[in-house]
Amino acid sequence: MARPYRRHPYRDVAYLLNTRPGPLHHRPLAFAHRGADPRRENTMGAFRRAVELGFRYLEVDVRTCADGTLVVFHDEELDRTTTGSGPVSEKTWEELAGLRVGAEGELAEPMVRFEELLSAFEDVHLNVDLKDAAAVEEFVRLIEKHQAHDRVLAASFNDARRHHVRRRLTRPIATSGGWTVTALLVLLGPLGLLGRLTGRLTEIDCVQVPISQGRLRVVTPRFVQRCHRAGLQVHVWVVDDPRQMHELLDMGVDGLMTDDAEALAEVMRERSVWPQR
């Protein structure tokens, strides 16, 4: 039987529903990584399936194509997951709209514009990984246009993109730390030097990290505790094994990202936090 979820003080962040009174208050969040359907990642078919299963959070990637349109896509090149080839940045949206993502037949899906996804589910929150510098301007424009400040989190391995987003928006949105902040947390934390990061940590709301990076174990009980003391949530990616999901949740992590939607839904159901919509 799963142990009760540990509570700790949270910063009040509109995007993070576990920080406010309601069914998810002080409960772990479930994220569908790229829609949690690797056969057709980052497509409306994958996103709809995840939402129907009960997911409230979708993790997505965005890139800028040649005409400035923001598209939901992970790779720099089209070759791995689509019927096209070459860099996304060299194609117009008109060209990309004719491609298909995923397996042949009924699983094949069209590519998705970020604005289309932003408008599709009014009560679903989007964890948005900005994959190129050019994405910042259009991302900000769309958030302002749709007044979606409370429904999006800006993520990027590149901390500078997060800074650019924050400076351009008229209202704050949730953000996660990039590689620099996360690395400093991992390396300086055990030395008791987190005080040197105070300014950086107040600019972010969570860290989104893998369990390990190479030989270095990132997510440990002490790492989670240090982040919590700094007011940060810990979201872990990408976790597909139910046993590991339970171990991480027992450790006190605040969210899990998965490619196996059914597995995470069942784990959350066992812990009485499902569905999350």
Results as ranks from 00 to 15, higher is better:
13 V>I: 14
246 H>K: 14
152 V>C: 00
95 E>F: 04
241 D>N: 15
106 E>S: 13
263 A>F: 14
17 L>R: 12
41 E>I: 05
94 E>F: 15
131 K>S: 08
143 I>P: 00
30 A>V: 10
58 L>V: 10
172 P>F: 08
35 G>E: 08
5 Y>V: 06
237 W>T: 13
211 I>N: 11
156 S>V: 11
67 D>L: 12
255 G>C: 06
93 W>H: 01
168 R>E: 11
260 D>A: 10
48 R>T: 12
242 P>M: 15
191 L>E: 12
200 R>I: 11
91 K>V: 06
18 N>P: 10
89 S>C: 15
8 H>C: 08
167 R>K: 11
117 L>W: 00
69 T>L: 06
149 H>A: 03
26 H>R: 09
192 G>C: 00
273 V>A: 13
164 H>D: 14
64 T>I: 01
149 H>M: 09
69 T>Q: 02
267 V>S: 04
268 M>Q: 15
129 D>Y: 11
205 D>H: 13
114 F>C: 02
130 L>W: 05
42 N>D: 07
161 R>I: 04
129 D>T: 01
192 G>V: 01
8 H>S: 04
259 D>P: 05
247 E>A: 15
177 G>S: 14
206 C>H: 06
79 D>W: 02
95 E>R: 07
181 V>C: 05
10 Y>D: 09
4 P>F: 01
250 D>I: 09
196 R>V: 07
3 R>A: 13
56 R>G: 05
64 T>N: 13
128 V>E: 07
147 Q>Y: 06
49 R>Y: 09
264 L>Q: 06
150 D>P: 02
94 E>I: 05
17 L>M: 12
53 L>H: 02
50 A>M: 03
197 L>G: 02
56 R>T: 09
156 S>W: 00
30 A>S: 05
178 G>W: 00
199 G>F: 10
172 P>M: 09
225 Q>I: 08
270 E>D: 15
16 L>D: 05
162 R>C: 00
112 V>F: 01
223 F>A: 07
77 E>F: 12
40 R>E: 01
13 V>S: 01
29 L>N: 00
216 L>R: 15
237 W>H: 09
64 T>A: 03
162 R>Q: 01
177 G>Q: 07
28 P>C: 05
111 M>I: 05
234 V>W: 04
224 V>K: 07
217 R>T: 10
229 R>K: 13
253 V>P: 07
231 G>I: 02
81 T>R: 08
185 L>A: 06
114 F>V: 04
161 R>F: 05
246 H>A: 14
252 G>D: 03
76 E>W: 04
20 R>E: 10
140 V>M: 12
103 A>P: 07
8 H>N: 04
156 S>D: 06
184 L>R: 01
228 H>N: 11
214 G>L: 01
274 W>L: 07
26 H>K: 04
81 T>Y: 13
212 S>C: 15
142 L>E: 12
250 D>Y: 12
149 H>L: 03
87 P>E: 08
121 F>Y: 14
83 T>L: 07
58 L>D: 05
38 P>R: 02
140 V>T: 13
227 C>V: 14
260 D>N: 15
91 K>Q: 11
224 V>R: 03
233 Q>L: 13
115 E>A: 12
261 A>M: 12
208 Q>N: 15
35 G>D: 04
179 W>T: 08
119 S>N: 02
24 L>A: 01
180 T>C: 07
234 V>H: 07
199 G>E: 01
102 G>R: 00
146 H>C: 03
137 E>C: 04
250 D>V: 13
69 T>Y: 02
